[in-house]
């Protein structure tokens, strides 16, 4: 893919998010930096509780009030972390769309599907109701949903249909960025595959950039151009999909890939650290087979020599 000339449209710089809880301070994102380029799919992968969803929520300012956020999120030349709520709700609806997990819960069960898909048109574009519903209908048709779906209610649909409707709703204003937060979590296999193919379809047809947040490595491999691997609030490795999956540089990435079925489910010793008392230095070092003295110090995120642009390779490990 000739993506090396692509413009970045979203820049996340040194984003840190912490929460005060009764058990102590939780550092959920720790100096997370990445760029999302036009027309590209970046997968943010990691296991439960590594802070990947917190990154998505902080981009959209959807964090709970007790969160403390540092760093920058640059979109259209401005730091949107400092935008007010009115500006944000404009951005959220029309420029950055979100696909949440659990499609059946994200739609209002007692409002017709057509109306729900049309709602962003009414709110953000001020298009009158009748015409917006008509546009929604056309849009649903383009998404491969039959005409009569618009007058049905979400509870009459299967989970897969609802997920499609959700995706259609988030796509109707042709956003520049789509953030898909765990779109396959909690779905059974067949449905998850449906969702993956749906996500791939939008990626190919819309030209929007996709930030895919998932724990599902197979999905990341099928869909993304670049992959960022998160562990305990940090991005530990980032690079093109093939580099990450074929030639992992960070020991955590390598160990995680070894847990895949085709590698024979090789377990990683130990368990994920809590984000309240996370290890000093490299966060993975207590579980790392290759640790040495220096791992007690915090490793910087380093760009590997000879990599640039979309094929840029970054690793947070003292071995590199």
């Amino acid at each position: 893919m000739s993506s090396s000339k692509k413009r970045p449209i979203l820049g996340v710089d040194e984003l840190s998010v912490s929460f005060q809880t009764s058990l102590g301070e939780v550092l959920a994102a720790d100096e997370v930096s990445f760029r999302l380029h036009e027309d590209e799919t970046l997968a943010l992968v990691g296991e439960t509780g590594c802070g990947k969803s917190v990154v998505a929520s902080s981009i959209l300012q959807l964090l709970p009030k007790n969160a403390e956020v540092h760093g920058q999120v640059v979109f259209e030349g401005r730091d949107i972390l400092r935008s007010d709520e009115r500006e944000m709700s404009h951005i959220r609806g029309s420029k950055i769309a979100v696909i949440f997990q659990n499609p059946s819960m994200s739609l209002n069960p007692i409002i017709r599907v057509g109306e729900q898909v049309a709602e962003p048109l009414q709110v953000h574009r001020g298009i009158p109701r009748h015409r917006s519903v008509q546009m929604a209908l056309d849009h649903l048709n383009r998404m491969g949903l039959r005409g009569d779906t618009a007058i049905m209610y979400p509870f009459q649909f299967s989970g897969g249909m609802n997920q499609r409707v959700m995706i259609a709703t988030s796509m109707i204003l042709s956003p520049q960025i789509i953030i898909a937060d765990e779109p396959t979590k909690g779905l059974d296999d067949a449905l998850a595959r449906d969702v993956v193919s749906e996500v791939m379809k939008i990626r190919d047809s819309s030209g929007a950039a996709l930030l895919l947040i998932t724990h599902d490595l197979q999905m990341a491999r099928d869909v993304s151009d670049r992959v960022a691997v998160m562990y305990c609030g940090q991005i530990v490795e980032m690079g093109s999909r093939d580099d990450i999956f074929e030639n992992p540089q960070h020991p955590y990435t390598a160990a995680l890939l070894n847990c895949l079925p085709e590698k024979g489910f090789q377990p990683i010793p130990g368990s994920s650290p809590s984000m309240i008392h996370s290890p000093d230095g490299c966060k993975f070092h207590p579980r790392c087979q290759k640790r040495f003295e220096r791992c007690r110090l915090r490793p910087p995120m380093e760009v590997l020599a000879g990599t640039k642009g979309a094929s840029e390779r970054q690793v947070r490990c003292w071995l590199r």
Binding site: E47, T48, H215, L217, A255, L256, N258, C259, L260, F265, Q266, P267, I268, S271, S272
Partner: peptide
Amino acid sequence: DLSVQAQMLS
């Protein structure tokens, strides 16, 4: 999770 699944299976 993937890594926990591997631990559980082993």
